[in-house]
Simulated assay, not measured.
Amino acid sequence: MIESLFALTPATVTWTPAVGMVMLACNVAAITLGKATIQQPNVGPAMPGDAKFFGGFSAGAVLGTTSLGHVLGFGAIQGLAAQGLL
């Protein structure tokens, strides 16, 4: 039984600059999507420092868009790795 559980563990992708670029691209896409669709991006606690650096987003908007970017990036990396492209 234990041996069959080990067979279910997926192979992990080793980090390379290409993997980092895919994650970066997905985060940029999510931030762009958030910038276009969030109706009140500056409501809530402000980001520390210069607000212009964060595009006028509040802390919640930054966390939300980058969280979505990481979910998209995870899926993209796993999909590209499964196809042998990463």
Rank of each mutant, 00 (worst) to 15 (best):
L63A: 02
T65Y: 12
G44Y: 13
P48K: 13
G69C: 04
K52W: 00
T66W: 05
G69A: 02
A46P: 07
Q40S: 11
A61W: 03
A76D: 14
G75R: 07
F74W: 14
G60P: 06
T66G: 01
G49M: 06
A51I: 07
P48H: 10
G73F: 11
S67A: 08
V62Y: 13
A59P: 04
A46Q: 12
A51P: 12
F54V: 06
G64M: 13
F57C: 02
G69V: 12
V71G: 01
I77K: 03
P48L: 15
P41S: 03
G56R: 07
V43N: 03
F54M: 07
S58V: 03
P48Q: 08
G55V: 10
V62Q: 14
F57W: 03
L63E: 00
F74L: 05
H70E: 05
P41D: 04
V43G: 03
G73L: 05
A76Y: 14
A59W: 15
M47T: 07
V71W: 11
A59T: 14
L72V: 08
T66M: 12
A61Y: 01
P41N: 09
A51H: 09
G49V: 03
G60M: 12
G56D: 05
G73Y: 14
L68G: 03
S58T: 09
F54A: 06
H70K: 06
A59K: 13
F74C: 05
F54D: 00
A46Y: 00
Q39C: 01
N42G: 10
G49I: 06
A61L: 00
G49Y: 06
N42Y: 05
N42E: 09
L72I: 09
T65D: 04
F57K: 04
F74Y: 14
F53H: 01
A46R: 08
H70C: 08
K52Y: 03
I77A: 01
V43E: 03
L68M: 15
G49L: 08
V71N: 02
Q39H: 06
S58E: 02
G55M: 08
L63V: 04
T65V: 15
G55S: 01
F57A: 01
T65W: 13
A59E: 14
V71M: 11
G73K: 09
F53M: 06
V43T: 06
A76W: 14
P45V: 15
I77G: 03
F57D: 02
F74M: 11
A76L: 12
G56E: 10
Q39D: 10
G64F: 14
L68K: 04
F53N: 00
P41F: 08
L72S: 06
N42P: 01
G60W: 13
L68V: 12
D50L: 11
L63G: 00
G60D: 11
P45R: 15
P45G: 02
G44I: 09
L63K: 04
G75E: 04
G60Q: 15
D50I: 10
